[in-house]
Simulated scan of single mutants.
Amino acid sequence: MRAVKKINNNVAVCLDANGNELVAFGKGVGFPKMPYEITDLSRIAMTFYRVDAQTYQMLSEIPEEVLEVSAQAVLEAQRRLQGNLSPNIVFSLADHINFALERQKHYKDMKPPLDYDVKQLYPKEYEMGKYTCQLIKKELLVVLPDSEAVAIAMHFINGQQGQPEQREDDSFDDLSGRIVDFIEDYFSIKIDQDEFAFNRFLTHLRYYLKRIQSSEISDGEVNPNLLATFKKESPEVYACTQQIVNFVDGRYHTATSDDEMFYLMVYVNRIVRKLTCTEEGEE
């Protein structure tokens, strides 16, 4: 195997014996000067084929230590969980962990909504979520809120191959489609629906709708000053999210709390920020 491009010290783009491109994870595989031949294949822990350019860009933006924690967690999940995991879970989980660390740094008082069904229906995956949080604490010295175990567990639930696929609800498809159209029109952008940030937004949106319809609304957990600060620093995101909330509450005759409003703002902001930063970089 020939390493041709360094992502970081432990991740490299390689060519196999047939000239096919892959991403290799392994201790020190990206350290030597490129290109070079990897003769000791035991150094490689995981390989991933058909990685697109978007994922390469994401990998370059995620700190090396975060990728390493994600890889360790997935290796442990492969041992604990029955069935095969999608290879993309390493990338999506790393992106989620990086986002969680960023959120913890800037919004310490924010605790993601906890979905109790995950604990009951997917105990093994929930235990993997707890394990990953402990791994983050040990390796990255960051203590995430307990509710992050649920969010991380969702990656292991969704990443299992060979499981019966859950059928998308037509009403959710319609609602999410209208919300996406609204965000695109409001900011004059085109959302890449293959992006990790968008998929995370969609997952959050689904559980937000479940919570408000079942009256399990998160409230009183977010420091009111956070919402006020976000509104001041990102008035357009606030106004856009407020209109989304008004649309949802009008449709379901619900009353979205300030906590839920804040959580939704964070996800909308990340989609918009990623797109606007990309467009500015291309100018």
Rank of each mutant, 00 (worst) to 15 (best):
M1H: 02
R2E: 10
R2V: 08
R2N: 06
R2P: 06
N10P: 01
A12W: 00
V13W: 03
C14D: 03
N18R: 13
E21N: 03
E21I: 08
L22W: 05
V23Y: 01
V23F: 01
G26E: 03
G28L: 04
V29H: 00
F31E: 09
M34H: 05
I38F: 05
I38A: 06
D40C: 05
I44M: 00
I44C: 02
T47W: 00
V51G: 02
V51I: 07
V51K: 04
A53N: 15
A53Y: 13
A53V: 12
V66S: 06
L67E: 05
L67K: 05
V69R: 04
S70Y: 08
Q72C: 14
A73C: 07
V74A: 04
V74M: 00
Q78T: 01
Q78M: 14
L81D: 00
Q82R: 13
G83S: 05
N84G: 15
V90S: 00
V90W: 09
S92I: 07
I97N: 04
N98E: 13
F99T: 12
E102A: 12
Q104H: 12
K105N: 11
H106S: 14
D109L: 12
K111C: 13
K111D: 15
P112N: 01
P113W: 11
Y116P: 10
K119D: 08
Q120M: 13
Y122L: 10
K124Q: 14
E127F: 10
M128V: 01
M128I: 06
M128R: 07
G129P: 05
G129S: 04
T132A: 05
K138E: 14
L141K: 13
L141E: 11
L144H: 07
P145C: 08
D146H: 07
E148C: 02
E148S: 03
A151L: 13
A151S: 12
A153P: 04
I157G: 01
I157T: 03
G159N: 00
G162E: 09
E165W: 11
Q166R: 14
E168P: 11
E168N: 09
E168D: 10
D170E: 14
F172Y: 07
L175C: 14
L175T: 10
G177M: 03
V180W: 08
V180H: 04
F182L: 01
E184T: 08
D185N: 14
Y186I: 08
F187S: 05
S188E: 14
I191P: 07
F198Q: 01
N199I: 10
T203Y: 15
H204L: 06
L205S: 06
R206T: 12
Y207W: 09
Q213V: 01
I217F: 10
S218F: 07
G220V: 04
G220C: 01
L226C: 09
L226Y: 09
L227N: 02
A228C: 12
F230P: 04
K232A: 09
S234R: 15
P235N: 04
P235L: 02
C240D: 08
C240Y: 04
Q242E: 13
Q243V: 11
V245E: 05
F247C: 11
D249S: 06
G250D: 03
T254D: 00
D258W: 11
D258H: 08
L264T: 09
Y267N: 09
Y267W: 06
R270W: 11
V272T: 01
L275K: 15
T278W: 15
T278K: 15
E279R: 15
G281R: 03
E282F: 10
